[in-house]
């Protein structure tokens, strides 16, 4: 088995999702090569060399790869995928964007968002917002896979010393160019990998009142999440959304505050180790999956909770 993992990064540091993808690769077993496609990303290359279980790091450096445009990343991956038995990347916005493009170019079917490796050709993936788990066996000669990061414990970030090899970039895709990026600034830990997540929903009531969620998160050293309703209403930015179509998280403690718990939201947090629900509606579906529930007004409970901590 020879596995190619596509690193996710911002040219400055390696995204933690890549360490989870490497863990999935280790479960399949075999030599693991990591592709770092970017621009002036030497720090990422160094980090990748050190990651546990990496045999080789392929480096493609070009200005056209600086912003992760799917067309250009896909063209690099398409060119080398045939040399491997598996190509893996995180089922993040980055991976979801380029991997299907690779699959279609190679006339292969991607396996999306795997949560378990059964064998080298058989994988488990959630469907219907995680309300069913489908086991699929791929007959394609290269298995193209996106990996759900929360389902695989990250490999060690240090200890490795993989060799590097430079590859030349081909021709940039003419039709697509990067314009700008509006990154949400937060001093909180990253939502996808935080040990504690504090999420607010429609019940929080307004953007101003959402500060109660931020305050509790700060007190707990937690990341801030939100339900779709809260994001749609403008209480929280889009990158905070937890759910079927947002981020999937699995922290040690997940606080669902003023969140009713629609199945689409549960899809993004039901694998959390402990779920705490605070909601004044005792019929809210969130209580069906919560380990600890408090049926009360969040504006009474959260300040009390802050005092207790």
């Amino acid at each position: 088995m020879s596995i190619l993992v596509i690193a996710e990064h911002d040219n400055a540091s390696l995204n933690a999702s890549t360490l989870s993808t490497l863990a999935a690769a280790a479960t399949i077993g075999g030599d693991v090569t990591v592709l770092v496609a970017g621009h002036n990303a030497s720090a990422v290359v160094t980090e990748t060399q050190a990651a546990s279980g990496v045999t080789k790091v392929l480096v493609v450096d070009d200005a056209a790869l600086a912003d992760g445009l799917a067309e250009n990343i896909a063209s690099v991956v398409t060119g080398i995928a045939g040399e491997y038995s598996h190509v893996l990347t995180a089922a993040s916005n980055f991976g979801k964007n380029f991997m299907p493009r690779v699959a279609a170019k190679l006339d292969m079917m991607q396996v999306s968002d795997i949560v378990e490796v059964v064998s080298a050709d058989t994988f488990v993936r959630p469907i219907y917002a995680g309300n069913a788990l489908m086991t699929v066996k791929s007959s394609d000669s290269v298995k193209l896979i996106t990996v759900r990061s929360t389902a695989f414990d990250a490999v060690e970030a240090t200890g490795g010393s993989a060799a590097t090899e430079d590859l030349a970039f081909g021709v940039a895709f003419a039709g697509t160019s990067f314009v700008s990026r509006d990154v949400t600034e937060s001093e909180r830990p990253e939502l996808a990998t935080a040990r504690i997540v504090v999420s607010g929903g429609r019940g929080v009531g307004s953007k101003e009142q959402f500060s109660i969620i931020d305050d509790l998160a700060e007190k707990l050293g937690a990341a801030v999440g939100a339900s779709r309703a809260a994001v749609d209403s403008g209480y929280a930015p889009n990158d905070c959304q937890v759910g079927q179509t947002g981020k999937v998280v699995a922290p040690d403690i997940y606080f669902a505050i003023g969140i009713s718990g629609a199945i689409q939201h549960q899809a993004g947090m039901r694998e959390s180790k402990i779920i705490v629900a605070i909601n004044k509606d005792d019929e809210a579906p969130i209580f069906q999956i919560a380990d600890y529930g408090i049926v009360a007004d969040l504006f009474d409970v959260v300040p009390e909770l802050m005092q207790q901590l």
Binding site: D67, S92, N93, S177, V179, R181
Partner: peptide, 14 residues
């Protein structure tokens, strides 16, 4: 404008 894991990104597509 695309929704990404870190916020928003704008690209120009022909």
């Amino acid at each position: 404008t695309r929704e990404t894991d870190t916020g928003l990104e704008t690209i120009k597509i022909s």
